[in-house]
Design a protein around this nucleic acid. Structure first.
Lengths: 338, 338
DNA sequence: GCCGGCGGGTTTACCGATATACTAAAGGCA
DNA sequence: TGCCTTTAGTATATCGGTAAACCCGCCGGC
């Protein structure tokens, strides 16, 4: 593997001159010399070593994507379609700016600090902050700029990109209300502990209140995790004397589970029950009927997070900000007019 | 940020002694000295710099995951659920061995070489080799061990992990044959150009031949890409005077599209038409009825690829190998007995 | 004629670790 | 006692770059 030394030797200049060519330092190298050096670099397909570079410049060009490990191994976050989209967008946006994505699964804050110190990551992004204590500690102790998705604390300086969760819950419920539904349930993964879910739930309550409807406690389903959680909700629904005519789910996958559970037991969607999802992720178009869902602009969210990170990397005073991204409703086939 | 120098100074030893502690070199440091040094390292939360390390050891501990860019940006590979699983498993398996996953999207071989040279990646993994010319060139020019998924050439030394695609196509078709079907179609994304798909197609033909059935050309659908491709196949099916009673898809998402297209037009699955998918990826459990599909052991495949890579990194002579992973059929609800 | 500035370089030190070779003291054995 | 081996280190060079300071010739201005 050819190094800057060999290039310099062959060009008959010092290494520093080659370095100046690499970094396009203006007014340091004559056009002829530059041309000569570039030709030699091309000839040997020379690429400067990132490791050697980062040693001096204190900039590794590595961005860590933090993937929390929940419990079992291979509970990998990427298994969530929304996360997979996110990572994919991050990779694209960052690589185009010459930053590279390194994945880092972690179970506690110490793991992250180890990662940051070891790789000298220029920045890190945390997705799915499921544990507030961890997120808070991370925000306080991180050694390079951190952008957190979907969570923000006002009492700690931190950079966050969130979405209008409450509005999302609201427009989902409002939509079914406008379609004539009055008996509306809610199914969420962790209404109590997950801030995202509780906000969505509050939005749902807001809409009901607007129509002077008191929510029926039996129709609020907590701890409905992923597809199976949705199926269980459907089973519970099936056993009820009086059922809601519509149900709002805190995530698409839960909505899909509800649809599946209903359809497998003779209830049609949206004929017997209307369902609204949240995220507009890939499952929402796969099911039949396609799912009406609250759309997050994932791409814009990713762009926003990257912008924040880049700015924080340049400006050491930029360590506290919150961007809240809008949401809208994608009407597809899972809601019927009553 | 504290470095080895400060640790050495505080411990009153040379940096080399600290280095020996870090690397647990036996018989180089007395137990007392080691204890003292470790305490100081802990006190400062010292973590050795990977960049500095890799400069000398020629081992960066970076593994690149190559994500081909097909055409438009954000055609990101991770959007494919199978790919997301794979990357997630790689990340987990590699990090537990102290190797870190760096994502690298690329549109040509030159991009990959730049990546490898720049980061001194210890190894790279290519997923979704859609272009044989690129894969071949990559295998020839790669600068660090390369493991290719789902593609192998016998005339080039290369390390590959494939699956029994032909067997997969065969058991899918055989299953519906055993269930009494005789009019069986096939829908694939790129039968001609994608080796994976063409093998699956051949397996399908094998099964038909075993039952002395001549395939009906009108029931072979090529260029059915992703969900929409499947929907289009369904639409084509709907317009036919004589329809197959079952259809084998080369990927789950296509199968889901077929199901959706049929269900939206009054055809029931599996009542009117049976569908078999391929991959056993997340969409297969989301749809109703759940999809009968050919299962790849994705986790095992990932483990196998990682083992190969590790071995190749140790043994410079290990540069040609092919592992073919088994497949089986997951019977769910999308196939009816005729 | 002298000084300052600029273009186009070079020299030297350093980033944070490791490899290699070397040393000094202690222990084993004849 | 002398020689060899082992233990526990140190010294120095090096990995592949970059930062910072310095150098030199030339030109323009006063």
């Amino acid at each position: 593997m050819v190094t800057i030394k060999e290039i310099a030797a062959e060009a008959g200049v010092s290494r520093m001159t080659v370095s100046n060519v690499i970094n396009s330092v203006r007014g340091k190298v004559s056009p002829e010399t530059e041309k000569r050096i570039r030709e030699i670099m091309d000839k040997y397909h020379y690429v400067p070593s990132r490791a050697a570079r980062s040693l001096n410049t204190k900039s590794s060009h590595i961005i860590g994507i933090l993937l929390p490990i929940w419990n079992a191994p291979s509970s990998g976050l990427l298994l969530n379609p929304y996360a997979a989209f996110m990572v994919s967008y991050f990779e694209e946006l960052l690589q185009s700016r010459d930053y590279y994505v390194m994945l880092c699964s972690f179970s506690n804050v110490e793991d992250v600090l180890l990662f940051q110190r070891g790789w000298h990551a220029d920045g890190v992004i945390q997705m799915f902050p499921h544990d507030d204590a961890v997120t808070r500690e991370l925000a306080e102790r991180t050694e390079s700029p951190l952008v957190v998705l979907d969570r923000h604390f006002n009492d700690v300086p931190m950079l966050s990109v969130c979405i209008e969760d409450r509005k999302g819950g609201y427009i989902a419920a409002k939509h079914v209300l406008e379609e004539g539904h009055r008996d509306i349930g809610f199914a969420g993964s962790a209404i109590e502990t997950s801030c995202v879910v509780s906000e969505r739930y509050r939005g749902y309550l807001d809409a009901l209140e607007e129509y002077h409807i008191r929510p029926e406690p039996a129709w609020t389903f907590d701890h409905a995790y992923r597809l199976e959680g949705g199926v269980q909700v459907a089973n519970a629904l099936l056993g009820m004397k009086r059922r809601p005519t519509a149900i709002i789910a805190s995530e698409d996958l839960i909505a899909c589970g509800i649809m599946q559970g209903c359809q497998e037991n003779g209830l049609t969607v949206p004929g017997d029950i209307s369902v609204v999802g949240f995220d507009n992720s890939s499952p929402s178009t796969i099911v039949t009927p396609r799912l009406t869902t609250v759309n997050q602009f994932i791409r814009k969210k990713a762009e926003c997070a990257v912008e924040m990170l880049m700015r924080a990397m340049e400006d050491p005073d930029y360590r506290s900000d919150l961007k809240v991204m809008d949401v809208d409703l994608v009407k597809r086939g899972s809601v019927a007019r009553l």
